[in-house]
């Protein structure tokens, strides 16, 4: 029996697969970590300008987006628990819900950015060039960090989309779900990054 299983999956090693995913997450962590460090230093050097910049951001939209992302983190976690118990339909519905929440997050982000652009806060425009230096730095970091985060939201949604497809065709099932777990790990990392972006940009003035 043991031999048959070994023969079916000659190269399968779930723990190594997960560890590989974690190694990738560490590089993401340091990528955003570096940006957080840049933010901290400039904040330390331009405290008044950063406080003024923070006041321009809409705490309400930020809070809504935080709630959306944390909820989506919960739905992907439960979808993994569901596939482990062989509840394929529940698992797929929860992943669809996760992607749906991600899209709402991005729509909110779009309106938030559009609103800033209308107020002349688009990097590269004349009005942006005339901002005080500290505020320009704040908004450059705001657009860059939330933009990079939004790209991660899109990438995570695509990753989850692939998992939905694989659960549907049975490649991922109750005995082989490490890819599903890895997609979940990526999604939780995106959530953790937002957990730090939100207070630093929106709340601390």
């Amino acid at each position: 029996m043991e031999q048959v299983i070994t023969h079916q999956h000659p190269h399968r090693d779930d723990e190594a697969s997960k560890m590989g995913m974690w190694l990738f997450l560490f590089t993401e962590l340091l990528l955003f970590g570096g940006l957080f460090l840049v933010f901290s230093i400039y904040r330390y050097m331009n405290q008044k300008a950063f406080a003024a910049g923070g006041h321009e951001l809409d705490v309400f939209i930020g809070t809504v987006n935080t709630i959306i992302l944390i909820t989506s983190s919960m739905t992907i976690a439960v979808s993994i628990a569901a596939i482990q118990q062989d509840k394929k339909k529940l698992s797929i519905s929860l992943m669809v819900l996760t992607i749906f929440l991600a899209i709402i997050f991005l729509i909110n982000k779009y309106f938030e950015w559009a609103h800033k652009f209308e107020h002349g806060l688009a990097p590269g425009t004349d009005s942006f060039l005339h901002l005080p230096k500290g505020e320009a730095l704040f908004f450059l970091l705001y657009f860059f960090m939330t933009g990079l985060h939004a790209l991660h939201v899109i990438a995570g949604s695509v990753f989850i989309g692939v998992i939905i497809f694989k659960v549907k065709n049975g490649t991922i099932n109750s005995t082989n779900f490490v890819q599903h777990e890895n997609a979940g790990l990526y999604w939780h990392l995106v959530d953790i990054i937002w957990i730090f972006l939100f207070p630093l940009f929106y709340l601390v003035h």
Binding site: V59, T63, T66, I67, I70, T71, S73, M74, A77, V78, A81, Q84, Q85, F198, P199, Y202, L203, V204, H205
Partner: peptide, 26 residues
């Protein structure tokens, strides 16, 4: 390694409360 659904919902509630707390603190 499976937590049950209830546990995840409990954790979600805890995270929501912390979010509200951080907004309130601000």
């Amino acid at each position: 390694n499976t937590l049950n659904y209830k546990a995840y919902i409990f954790i979600w509630v805890a995270l929501m409360e912390l979010t509200i707390l951080s907004v309130a603190a601000s």
